[in-house]
């Protein structure tokens, strides 16, 4: 018996948003009478944290703390159109729509504040704590609470805004395939280290070191959640998962979580995550979509590490112990 060790690398990029564009998302933002802000969307939170991130984006843009923002989403009677949460598009598309809506609302808010303070709106700024200050004269200020009260009860203004984000659809040229699949790309590089049991074909992923470039980590803890979970899923895809274990034969498809294999809590690789930020030109505060790409580089990195360990190439996913063992036996026979 020999446990043999190897390591492999893979580098990838990933397009943000629906391929070829044409996928709109809209947002509405309005203030309540006491200066809280409501973001209305029809975007879906799958657990990635859409609601929290949209609240932070709106708060940043308006200039209030995040806990002053409420996100009402995924009700088609109230929320304007969103193409959906998929293709790493949620943060990018909805975030841009929220920024546009929040900017419009902020402008109204500043205009009302300007009337109250008897200055020009262009001379005002927010302190991020819920106050509007005159630039260069911060002692002259008004709270957003008071501005909202004034807008609603005194000045008859609606502190609100509409946001829309659409990457125009690109149609591939028939003969050459000239097209614009995406406007921004996330990047990653993963190094995986594995052990392979050369008598059974069993693989243990010891470590994965993942470097992800995601434009901007809007909420670093939530980014970490996605990247750690995605890295696990990448390893899972590499070594475990399939609904048709004997594809293209249709037999023996798993029907439960015992038969459908995924790494358990006792199979976890030591996982390191490093994040770089090169803001995208059209991303909300520079953000790109990290949700999908974070699960991709582990697959080839593990495949390459298996080769490095035992000298056989498994070019069919998943890289099961059986496929490795068959390859090792073929290798020994040659």
């Amino acid at each position: 018996m020999a446990i043999r060790r190897g390591r492999g690398v893979a580098a990838i990029n990933y397009p943000t948003g629906m391929n070829l564009g044409g996928d709109p998302t809209q947002a509405l933002v309005h203030s309540t009478p006491t200066g809280n802000f409501m973001v209305t969307l029809s975007s879906v939170d799958l657990g990635q944290g859409m609601k929290q991130i949209m609240a932070q984006i709106c708060a940043e843009t308006i200039g209030v703390p995040t806990d002053r923002v409420v996100v009402d989403t995924a009700d088609t009677d109230t929320g304007p159109h969103c193409m959906g949460t998929f293709a790493s598009r949620g943060t990018h598309r909805a975030g841009n729509a929220v920024i546009q809506a929040a900017r419009e609302a902020r402008q109204v808010m500043l205009e009302v504040a300007a009337e109250e303070l008897e200055v020009n709106a262009s001379d005002l700024e927010t302190d991020g704590q819920g106050n509007i200050l005159v630039k260069g004269a911060p002692q002259k200020s008004i709270s957003i609470f008071d501005v909202a009260l004034s807008a609603h009860f005194k000045r008859g203004r609606s502190i609100s805004g509409r946001g829309m984000f659409l990457i125009p659809r690109s149609y591939p040229e028939k003969e050459t395939g000239a097209m614009k699949p995406s406007t921004c790309y996330a990047h990653a590089c993963t190094v995986a280290e594995v052990e392979v049991d050369d008598e059974t074909g069993e693989v243990t992923v010891l470590t994965v070191k993942n470097v992800f470039e995601i434009g901007r980590a809007l909420n670093p803890k939530m980014v970490e959640q996605q990247l750690v979970g995605g890295s696990w899923m990448g390893i899972s895809h590499a070594l475990y998962e399939t609904t048709e274990p004997y594809y293209p034969n249709r037999d023996h498809g798993g029907t439960d979580f015992n038969q459908y294999l995924m790494p358990g809590p006792g199979d976890l690789a030591e996982t390191e995550i490093i994040v770089l930020e090169r803001p995208s030109a059209d991303g909300p505060y520079g953000a790109k979509g990290p949700g999908e790409m974070c699960a991709n580089p582990q697959i080839p990195a593990v495949a390459n590490a298996v080769f490095d360990a035992v000298g056989v190439r498994i070019d069919t996913l998943p890289i099961t112990p059986e496929r490795i063992l068959r390859a090792l036996k073929a290798q020994a026979a040659n």
Partner: peptide, 20 residues
């Protein structure tokens, strides 16, 4: 559709090919 749709398996192929 699934996470990485249209890309994930391609990346596996491309990056194993790069190693080779």
């Amino acid at each position: 559709a699934m996470r990485g749709f249209g890309v994930t398996i391609g990346d596996f192929a491309l990056e194993v090919q790069m190693d080779k």
